[in-house]
Structures are given as C-alpha cells and as structure tokens.
C-alpha cells in the first residue's frame, strides 16, 4: 500500500515482523495456545452478547440486531460483566499445583 491507496481500502498488517518466539518444546503447542486463547475470547464475546439479549428482553420484551448493536451497558452492568469475565478467566486458566 502507498500514499495512493484510498483510505477506505487500507488493510493493516495483522502479523508482526520477525521470528515469533516459542515457549514450548513442540511449537505445535504454541500454536495450540493461540487457538485456545482465541476460542476462550470468542466464548466470552458470545456470553456478553447473550447477556445483552437477556437485558434487552427484560427491558423491552423484544430484541432486534439493531438494539443489540446499539446497546451500551451502564457502569453498574459493566461492573457485573467485568466481575464475570474475571471469574471466567480464573476458572478457565486454573493452573495445576506445581510439583
């Protein structure tokens, strides 16, 4: 891409340059960790969407894609969600006792 690329057509690079370090003896495990972390993230995204749907149904008795998209939680609801995410991460990434 150059200065001639229109701003609406810019696609930013998704990959960093340089060699990616690996932390496990088998690099496949490093790749597996990426799959796992991305999947864990998507579960949280779906959970949040479900929470939005539930709250909209409670409030309005109906839900549309537009109302989901427009929904911004207030500070109290965001606090509840943050606590859920925190507990969720701690549950999923429970480490075995060392030894």
């Amino acid at each position: 891409m150059t200065a001639q690329t229109p701003a609406t057509a810019v696609k930013l690079p998704r990959q960093t340059r340089g060699k990616r370090p690996h932390f496990f003896d088998d690099p496949a495990l490093d790749q597996m960790m990426t799959f796992l972390l991305e999947l864990t993230t998507e579960v949280s995204v779906m959970r949040e969407r479900l929470d939005t749907v539930e709250r909209l149904l409670e409030r309005d008795g109906k839900v549309t894609r537009e109302t989901i998209e427009a929904y911004i939680p207030d500070a109290d609801i965001e606090k509840v969600r943050a606590a859920w995410r925190d507990a969720y991460v701690k549950r999923v990434f429970r480490m075995h006792p060392a030894g």
Partner: peptide
C-alpha cells in the same frame, strides 16, 4: 467498534490483566 468487537476488547483487557 461493534457490540462483539467491544466485548472482544473487554475480554482481551481482562486476559492481559490476568
């Protein structure tokens, strides 16, 4: 960001803190 993009960002923040 869309609803789901926001949710994803929020989760990444949580993961980073973890």
């Amino acid at each position: 960001p869309t609803h789901d993009e926001r949710a994803r960002q929020q989760f990444v923040s949580t993961l980073r803190k973890h």
